[in-house]
């Protein structure tokens, strides 16, 4: 299934508009602190496969940050968007960013989507973005996909978060955070989370909980950093 084939003209139009809006907003943002910047630089420099992982409601600013690196350094990145109408817009935005787009979600086309992700990582060296509480939540509840993908590919999970001193909270299931114009931003990149290839079900569950815990701690850390500023 090719992502391009399933995207309507309307979705492409909205994607273009939203991309422009994001670009304009991003020009006004000021990153005040960046914890884990050294690890981030290494990831971009090495360009070897990793699983960039963040809560769904943190994707707005993080996608701006990642897009910049796809354009600037040719960072090889794939994203998964759902097969819904909203997913079409996400897919179109991903393609505008220069990312490889895989369509699928746990409920529809999930296995096929996961297999494409797996092959892109193992055979073509792509990194992927996984939002472990997506695509429909519950908010801040990690699903098993991220740890299984890390287990099978033997690639590290890179937890990410950000906070802003002023932002809109969209009344969606995830309470998406969109920094307001001229917001001060803090970014946090966490330590790698590795999942053993031989992990059994209990170990996978433990890793899943660990991803949840780390991402929550990083939300708090990012918020603390911006509060200090």
């Amino acid at each position: 299934m090719k992502a391009e084939a399933n995207i309507s003209l309307k979705a492409r139009f909205f994607a273009g508009l939203l991309t422009l809006l994001k670009k304009l907003l991003s020009l006004t943002y000021r990153v005040e602190s960046f914890e884990g910047q050294e690890r981030w630089e290494t990831i971009l420099k090495e360009n070897t496969p990793v699983l960039l992982t963040a809560w769904h409601n943190r994707v707005f600013y993080l996608s701006i940050m990642i897009k910049r690196e796809i354009v600037r350094r040719g960072f090889k990145l794939a994203i998964m968007t759902s097969l819904s109408k909203d997913g079409q817009i996400g897919a179109a935005m991903g393609m505008i960013s220069g990312a490889r787009v895989v369509r699928g979600s746990p409920s529809r086309g999930g296995t096929e989507g996961f297999r494409r992700f797996y092959r892109l990582m193992k055979k073509e060296g792509y990194s992927i973005v996984i939002l472990p509480d997506g695509s429909k939540g519950p908010k801040y509840e990690a699903k098993m996909g991220v740890v299984v993908m890390a287990q099978l590919t033997k690639c590290p999970i890179i937890p990410m978060s950000f906070s802003a001193d002023r932002y809109w909270e969209i009344p969606s299931w995830d309470k998406m955070i969109i920094p307001k114009p001229f917001a001060r931003i803090s970014v946090v990149i966490g330590d790698d989370i590795l999942v053993d290839r031989d992990a059994d079900e209990q170990a996978l569950e433990s890793s899943r909980k660990s991803v949840e815990q780390v991402l929550m701690e990083m939300n708090a850390r990012a918020k603390a950093l911006i509060s200090k500023g």
């Binding site: 746990p106 296995t111 989507g113 996961f114 299984v148 993908m149 287990q151 099978l152």
Partner: peptide
């Protein structure tokens, strides 16, 4: 067997 388990199974 959900999506992640199906991927595990196939791999």
């Amino acid at each position: 067997i959900d999506s992640p388990k199906a991927l595990q199974l196939l791999v």
